[in-house]
Simulated assay, not measured.
Amino acid sequence: MKFPSYQLTAHLDQTIPVVILIAGDEYLLVEETCQQVVAAATRQGYQRQQQFTLDRQFDWSFLLSELRTQSLFAEKHVLQLNLLQGKLKESDAAELLSYLSSPNPDRLLLIRSPKIESSQSRSKWIKQLDSVGWWVQVWPIDRPKFPQWIRQRLKQHHLSADSAAIQLLAERTEGNLLAAAQEIEKLALLFPHSQITTNQMMQAVGVSARYTPFDLVDTALNGEVAKVHTMLRGLLAEGVEPVLILWSLLKEVRALMPLSESIAKGNSLDAALKNGGVWKKREACYRAALKRHDVISLYALLAVGAGVDRCIKGVGSSNIEAELLQLALGIASEPSAPLVSMGKNEKVYW
């Protein structure tokens, strides 16, 4: 049975199945969902928990022995298997499938995994798990829902705050749920059972914005020009390799090319997206980008990307940040956008 994590509480009132898969990419939410399952299992008589990680040195025989052992006193145990990636090797998938075909009713196998891609959801072990247990999908918090998540988190710690204070915390911990949770715990210590003012929030909360190259890509595709430079500078300051940022940006430019060519041949934007197999979650940012760019401007962006690649390899300009910014702003802007200043004696044109 597959369901989203917000439905888990209702399901935990039932008898816990022999296997539960918790899958998602947001560390804090996945961790707390696992803790919720273990707490419910304890209430239902499970007495012991062990954890295993499926890495290169993993020995299936040890886990399977623990899973299949029959307890003399009918003791129930929780065994947690942490997957490092959602796609398993054939041998690992076969071991899981074999166990799930005849699981031990006195054992709860709790599998923690990154997001399971749609292509993997059709694998045999996932289908077998779905038939004998639960697959709990943990989705990240969308940006518009982040302030509401903060409000609920504050309430759990017997705190409240006005909209301005909540918005401030959301801005300073942008996308970083773990950082937001830690800041709320700190607020609970500093101002127990209080209504947090904007000034108190400003004094207590640091800046903990977290960006990934994929966040930069989406921001550029959506045309959020003002934010692109901040995100790029943050990524480089965090030590993200320029080649990874370049690859992420050019990957999307290349993905836009056939869609733009389809539109140039007379197809509608809707038809181009549908025929191009664009995921629903990606449609909005692709639409925004394709309204700004045509085939010619996309080819120009590929040329800019080639220049960035040469720069990274030590040929030509040595200002990698300026070169990457030119590419990212090129994606985010109309092709005729005016120059953007990076600072003293540093200007980028698109």
Rank of each mutant, 00 (worst) to 15 (best):
L178C: 02
A255C: 00
R48I: 01
Q148L: 12
P147Y: 15
L54Y: 11
E174A: 06
L249D: 06
A306Q: 12
G330F: 09
A255K: 11
E31L: 14
L324G: 03
R56Q: 09
G206L: 07
I312Q: 06
L154G: 08
G175V: 04
S317R: 02
A209E: 11
Q137F: 01
T53W: 05
N275Y: 11
K313T: 07
S333W: 14
F146E: 10
W139C: 07
I166H: 12
Y211M: 06
K280W: 12
N104S: 08
A284Y: 07
V30R: 08
F73R: 10
A161F: 08
W125M: 12
P242N: 03
V18R: 07
S91E: 15
Q156H: 13
T173R: 00
A161N: 10
P192D: 14
Q50M: 05
P105M: 09
I22G: 10
K2Q: 14
T219H: 00
A39T: 11
Q137V: 12
V278I: 15
E183M: 08
S163H: 13
V253E: 01
E185K: 06
P335M: 14
Q7V: 00
D13Y: 00
I263L: 14
D142T: 03
T173Q: 02
E334S: 13
F146T: 09
S317A: 03
E183A: 13
V315T: 07
W350D: 01
L108V: 10
L256D: 04
A288M: 07
G234S: 12
T198L: 15
V132Q: 13
A303E: 13
D59A: 15
E323V: 00
A289G: 11
A209S: 07
L327Y: 03
Q120T: 10
A188S: 15
R151W: 08
K274I: 12
R254C: 04
K89I: 01
E334M: 15
L290I: 03
E75S: 15
A332G: 07
Q51S: 08
S260G: 14
L21A: 13
I126H: 03
A10E: 01
L273K: 11
A170P: 07
D106Y: 14
Q35F: 02
Q49C: 02
S194W: 10
K291Q: 14
N176R: 11
I116T: 14
M201V: 09
S61Y: 05
V243Q: 05
L249H: 04
A181G: 02
K227G: 09
L244F: 01
L190E: 01
L84W: 02
N104R: 08
I150S: 09
R233P: 00
V243N: 01
I196L: 12
H193C: 05
Q182I: 03
S91W: 07
V228R: 05
L249T: 03
